[in-house]
Computed example of a mutant assay.
Amino acid sequence: MHISKNLIGLAAVGILVAGCSSSTDDSARPAGSTGSADSASGDKAKAPEPKADLAVPVTGPQPDVLASSSDPKLKVTPEPDNSAPFDERVEHKLQEDLLGRLKIPGKTSADCPDGVTRKAGAVSVCNVTYEGATVPYEIKISDKYKEGSFVTFYTSTPKKGLLVAKNAYDRMWTANKGRSDISKLSCEELPAAKAVEEETETGQYCQYWSAYAGDDGKGGYVKLGIKVNRHNVDFFEVR
């Protein structure tokens, strides 16, 4: 599990941190004849007809997914200055942490309902919302913290993953775009944003047409389940 480490001081804000067929025609063979008349068609067996594509065709990268987590478009403004309350600065950093992991700009907010307890080893809970989906974060103050310290070290750990449609569509494309044996990439209509358990099946699916899939290896759809990890979307084959 990746944990980002953070530093907030009184004077500075740290960075949260195929085959052939043949046929034999016996219809014109005289009764009792032992001869044969075979002819090979030479035609490749036809692949089974594909099922309908899923609701959302995936035909290219998603333009809203940025290349870098440090892109200025992912900054939350205005940024609180060094004199702002500690909780406010933590809430700001949590929003930027979530946006940096997703790499997709969106509307965010954060709230630490009971505040952040600044005592050695203290654990607090803050909630970060992205496009209506809320991810709880655990905030743990360093065990070495001393009251009145100039700086406060803490770790922030998201307790859920976030399934974002644009992220999943983009990942589906980038993970498969170099393959010449597949086509017809598509996904179900996924939620704009939904909090989910990490590394757990979401019950959502994508698929592609593969020239080598199917029971006879002559072509068919491959169904992919979706899981979410800390930084990305993972696909797994559903059989």
Rank of each mutant, 00 (worst) to 15 (best):
K93I: 15
D111M: 03
G121W: 02
T108K: 07
L102R: 13
V123G: 00
R118E: 12
E96G: 10
L102M: 12
A120R: 03
I104L: 14
V123I: 04
P113Y: 02
G148H: 03
S109H: 07
V135A: 03
F150K: 15
F150D: 09
I139G: 03
S109P: 09
D143N: 13
Y130W: 01
D87F: 08
P113E: 01
P105W: 04
G115V: 12
K103T: 12
D81S: 13
E147S: 10
D143K: 15
T117D: 05
V135I: 15
E147Y: 08
L102G: 09
A120H: 03
V135C: 04
V135T: 10
I141Q: 06
E138N: 09
G100Q: 04
G121K: 01
I139M: 06
H92S: 09
K103L: 11
L98G: 07
K119E: 13
E91V: 12
V125S: 03
G106P: 13
N82P: 02
G100K: 02
G132P: 11
V123F: 00
A84N: 13
A110G: 07
G148Y: 12
L98D: 05
L98A: 12
K107C: 02
Y145P: 06
P80W: 11
G132D: 01
K119V: 01
D87M: 07
S142D: 14
K140V: 14
K146Y: 12
K107V: 11
Y130S: 00
A84D: 15
P136R: 04
